[in-house]
Design a protein around this nucleic acid. Structure first.
Length: 479
RNA sequence: CGGGGCGUAGCGCAGUCUGGUUAGCGCACCUGCUUUGGGAGCAGGGGGUCGAAGGUUCGAAUCCUUUCGCCCCGACCA
């Protein structure tokens, strides 16, 4: 295991990779741009999945599975969609030892196959809405990849819904955006700004794209979830038609929305420090580690270890099985054991030694701020969950404060540029430009419109074009 | 896909310019003893054929040609 993590200040990119490596979250695969998600990384993904999946079901969605391979002609049915995805598609041309009559694309996203199926399933207004989600892998051939943030293959969830009316589909789009925002806040401790994407950043084929944007600890933005309103674009391309109550034939209105394993990258870059991973308790595979400590082997085996086991059982009953573990790596010295849990981001460590046992207490050490507390053993069922809750809140607040401290509102371009140069971060400004203006700003500053935040509906004079009645936009350099 | 860098033990590197003993070093790993409340010490030990292919040569990690891969910086993207 790598022992030293490159400090963030020295090389952020290397720091990120070092954190992943020391926490054993992922490793490079033999194929370029692909990664192996190691057990620890995968259990974080399982935690994330659990919360999202539950929320999807609560909002009436059901899971299904659509195939990995998509006829290439499907992609070509929606003009913007093919233009957007064709360059990054991997294509299967041979199978069974023969060249295929029609090449098959490895799904970069599933709008097209799902559209095809929906057209078969939808006849009447009674067939709507269709509210389906799928957990799957997708492939987008990336020129430049980074673990979790951008790999050629990644895991995600894609919801695809079809509705009878524009209003209902739009409502669905925003509802799922809000589901994302809530889970990111309450489970991942990620402060995000929900907003609408600019024309230039829109999903290929969508009428409108909404996003949750987060600020990483290097002040760059990360798009951490998106929700698209497709209008009738895909319904027309795939003939998803239904007969309404007036006997008219109508095209359905569709949406799609997704979050991916990129969220793990967001967690790392939002919370972790120079000693390694820091995980918010709700997604931490191991929430609490109990470390029995003693140089006296007899005491260790006869009293400390059994006490630690009992403590773990009691806590597991409260926190959920297997989220509390006892560290029995006695071949390692305590210092090494401390650091290994530190690097893996275990939110809370309970040290149990002779001194503690004598006073009927454990020494609790928080991963996020290193705070040490002596907790009465009799009361851990109450005290530990409270501390974990506090850790979650503190992580969220710290990230939120960081974002606020690095968000600036400007009214002219020179100020825009100087802030971006000297500090970076999010820049709020009224903006009325189109794709051409966005491109110009990007070329000159590296920053793009991350979103038009939903929570700020004020209007003003555009900082770039001078036009009145411009919407509030957030700009940033991004991943 | 353009610019730069690099492939020698699990990781990090030296050796390559100026071919020549059994290819070294640090960390990690294994064994033993001593240690153990914040990254231990000593002793012993295992592991590589030098990214791959071809060529030059008595002899190649080292020279030549080709090729593959990775990392960093840019253009394109969840």
């Amino acid at each position: 295991m790598a022992r030293n993590i490159t400090p963030k200040e020295q090389d952020y990119s290397q720091w990120y990779l070092d954190v992943i490596k020391t926490a054993e979250l992922a490793d490079y695969a033999p194929v370029r741009g692909c990664m192996v998600i190691r057990p620890t990384g995968y259990s974080i993904w399982e935690s994330i999945q659990k919360y999202f999946d539950e929320a999807f079901k609560e909002t009436g969605h059901v899971n299904a599975y659509f195939p990995l391979l998509i006829p290439i002609s499907f992609l070509e049915k929606e003009a913007e969609h093919v233009e957007g995805f064709a360059p990054e598609c991997a294509v299967v041309t041979h199978a069974g030892g023969e060249e295929l009559e029609e090449p098959l694309v490895i799904r970069p996203t599933s709008e097209t196959v799902i559209g095809h199926m929906y057209s078969k399933w939808v006849q009447s207004w009674r067939d709507l809405p269709i509210l389906i989600n799928q957990w799957a892998n997708v492939m987008r051939w990336e020129k430049r990849s980074r673990l979790f943030l951008r790999t050629s293959e990644f895991l995600w969830q894609e919801g695809h819904t079809a509705h009878a009316t524009r209003e209902e589909a739009l409502e669905e789009t925003l509802k799922m955006l809000e589901v994302y925002r809530t889970i990111m806040t309450e489970i991942l401790a990620l402060p995000v700004i929900a907003g609408e994407k600019s024309e230039g950043e829109r999903f290929p084929g969508a009428e409108n794209t909404f996003t949750c944007e987060a600020m990483m600890s290097d002040k760059k933005a990360l798009q951490s979830g998106t929700s698209h309103f497709m209008g009738q674009n895909f319904a027309k391309a795939f003939e998803i038609q239904f007969q309404n109550q007036n006997l008219d034939l109508e095209y359905a209105w569709t949406t799609s929305w997704g979050v991916s394993t990129r969220l793990i990258g967001a967690l790392i870059m939002t919370h972790s420090d120079n000693d390694g991973l820091i995980l918010p308790p709700r997604v931490a595979p191991v929430k609490v580690v109990i470390m029995p400590i003693s140089k006296d082997e007899n005491k260790l085996n006869n009293s400390i270890l059994p006490s630690a086991m009992e403590l773990a059982n009691r806590l597991n009953n409260v926190l959920g099985s297997r989220s509390v573990v006892v560290d029995t790596e006695f071949h390692m010295r305590p210092g090494d054991r401390f650091f290994s849990h530190l690097q893996r981001g275990v939110p809370l460590r309970l040290e149990l030694g002779e001194r503690d046992l004598e006073q009927g207490a454990v020494l609790a050490v928080r991963r996020d701020n290193r705070e040490k507390m002596l907790l009465p053993i009799s009361d851990v069922e109450n005290s530990v969950p409270v501390i974990l809750e506090q850790i979650h809140n503190d992580l969220y607040t710290r990230a939120l404060n960081f974002r606020n401290d690095n968000t600036f509102q400007v009214s002219d371009f020179s100020e825009f540029k100087s802030i971006l140069e000297t500090n970076g971060g999010f820049i709020k400004a009224y903006f009325a430009g189109g794709v051409a203006e966005e491109k110009k700003i990007k070329e000159e500053t590296g920053a793009t419109v991350r979103c038009f935040p939903l929570e700020d509906t004020s209007t003003g004079k555009c900082f770039f074009t001078g036009k009145d009645n411009a919407k509030m936009a957030i700009f940033a350099r991004s991943y």
